[in-house]
Design a protein around this nucleic acid. Structure first.
Lengths: 245, 245
DNA sequence: TTAGCTGAGAGGTCTGATCTCCTGATGGCC
DNA sequence: GGCCATCAGGAGATCAGACCTCTCAGCTAA
């Protein structure tokens, strides 16, 4: 493979390698900066640059005064190239919904086909949690449910893509005005049914991939329609046909 | 928005903000480290950590002895969470192809609907370049063509997702054995037609989104089938139905 | 028992010396 | 006149170490 150009790059690779080869787990702690720097025979600043890189990648989490830990927290920057785009937030949000539609319908199918008992248990738990969410938690727990579906699909690429989209989703949502946010936040009534139906289609006895796809599609279409209603219809106008399948 | 916890985080945000607000362009150069650190009133190490972060995100490119530049090069690490997965390369590659199938078919539709004259010119140029590629360039120019389609689709989220997938695609491909690589590299004969048909469906007079989708789907299916043929069929077995639409 | 203090240890930041790498200018050679 | 070897300046790369801030656990005293 290509050798790293810089020390920090090398350190990043090394830490990833160690993580994989030693079979370390998420939550495990790395040695203190000074000691790790000594072990790797690099300066502390090089090590810290590597840490910043790993942190940006979302592979480690650094807690001031506590230590550095491996984490599964997907990084917030995955789609951050978008910050460079001049796409207005409303349009960006419409695009994100469309991307979710595309990816999540497929994930729903895979989840219905591949989910294990454990996956299904987690799915139910997430749906339950979402159902009893308090004000201000709808969005977070809602996304958690969708990420649980992604996990159940056992498709690492699509799941990672969804994580990236969802992270950006929350971020963009914050930049939108209240009306738009309400579409998300106050949406619990109708969305509830969607989650439960997706779970039902995925449960062991049923296993209805096509049904899961339809449920997920309807679920996200609701959201899309609601959002479109309060924004310029033109923005999402030509997104309807092909997505409609 | 949420305030950065650390100085490097703040610096990263600041640099992104400046890039957007000043209307800077890709290729523009940042001030030298020492001067930029002075301007921002932070130490050089903090600035360098921020740079490492931005570099990891793929927003800047640092050239030793030359300077630091804004870049559109999407980060090679975009999907690097995948490195933590235990997914074997063959399976990962199959997943990447499937993700491309999902995203690119949609992008082909959008490109056929939205492409401007300039987009189409670039598309033709990319197809041309691919057609005359020399040995060892097939993969690179091939992906360039697909990225040109993505650009023509004017969908920043999906385009960014594709960039991420394509970057990882090359990387994973390198880890596969020769036989698998040949599927990509020596594939020019058949793939050629696919590219040209996609261009045709997108050209101003025609504008056949459905046709473009079909062409893209067939194009990637070819690749998928070829790859599947030399690997365990079970890996992609249950991916066929829903994607088939 | 418990509120509050405190010190050890971890990360955060700065500085400035020194090294390495690129690039363009210089100047001699063909 | 054109070409190439050399060199100096500028920019990033790395290091060492001093000092700051934060967290947490354990101690202490009310």
């Amino acid at each position: 493979m290509r050798r790293p150009r810089s020390l920090p790059d090398a350190v990043m690779s090394e830490i990833q390698r160690v993580f994989v080869e030693r079979g370390l787990k998420v939550g495990d702690r790395l040695p203190p900066e000074r000691e790790l720097a000594r072990q790797l025979a690099v300066g502390r600043s090089s090590l810290r640059e590597a840490m910043q890189g790993l942190q940006t990648m979302g592979l480690v989490e650094v807690r001031h005064g506590v230590g550095t830990f491996f984490t599964s927290e997907p990084s917030k920057w995955l789609l951050s190239l978008l910050r460079f785009s001049t796409t207005p937030p409303r349009r960006l949000f419409a695009e994100l919904i469309e991307a979710r539609l595309l990816v999540e319908v497929r994930l729903a199918v895979l989840a219905a086909e591949r989910a294990t008992k454990e996956d299904i248990a987690r799915l139910k738990e997430a749906a339950e949690k979402r159902a009893h969410a308090m004000r201000g938690q709808y969005l977070e727990f809602g996304l958690d449910f969708h990420l649980a579906v992604a996990a159940a699909a056992h498709h690492s690429v699509l799941a990672t893509m969804l994580k990236a989209v969802c992270n950006h989703y929350s971020e963009v949502l914050e930049t939108l005005d209240r009306a738009a946010q309400d579409v998300e936040a106050g949406f619990r009534g109708r969305q509830q049914g969607g989650h439960e139906e997706i779970v039902r289609m995925t449960e062991s006895e049923e296993r209805d991939p096509q049904g899961a796809a339809d449920a997920m599609r309807a679920h996200l279409r609701d959201l899309q329609a609601e959002f479109t209603a309060i924004t310029e219809p033109s923005l999402t106008a030509h997104s309807e046909r092909e997505t409609a399948k």
